[in-house]
């Protein structure tokens, strides 16, 4: 049986996915989960790990939730609508 990946590894992989596609693709939590499970394989990564990894990323401030007609996870940035 394959050894599970750690929350940190999943978080790192997710962060990279979001960073590498910034401005081109908006990720929903479910998209990140599907991509992570695809990357590591079902035997090494599961839903709960993904959920924890997202929580880790958001609690540490590396990703933030955003809302544009649906909720996404993004690298923190100044939004288009913001006033000073």
């Amino acid at each position: 049986m394959a050894e599970k990946v750690t929350i940190e590894e999943v978080a790192e992989a997710m962060y990279k996915m979001v960073k590498d596609t910034m401005g081109m693709k908006k990720w929903k939590a479910m998209d990140l989960q599907k991509a992570a499970i695809e990357l590591f394989g079902e035997d090494r990564c599961d839903k709960n790990l993904c959920k924890e990894a997202i929580k880790e990323l958001v609690n540490s401030g590396r990703l933030v939730y955003t809302y544009f007609g649906g909720s996404y996870l993004e690298i923190p940035h100044k939004e288009g609508a913001a006033n000073d």
């Binding site: 081109m24 693709k25 908006k26 544009f68 007609g69 649906g70 939004e79 288009g80 609508a81």
Partner: peptide, 15 residues
């Protein structure tokens, strides 16, 4: 001007 900065085209089309 604003559109390419704040909108993701496939999402807009799908909406």
């Amino acid at each position: 001007d604003l559109l390419p900065k704040v909108c993701e085209i496939p999402n807009v089309v799908a909406s």
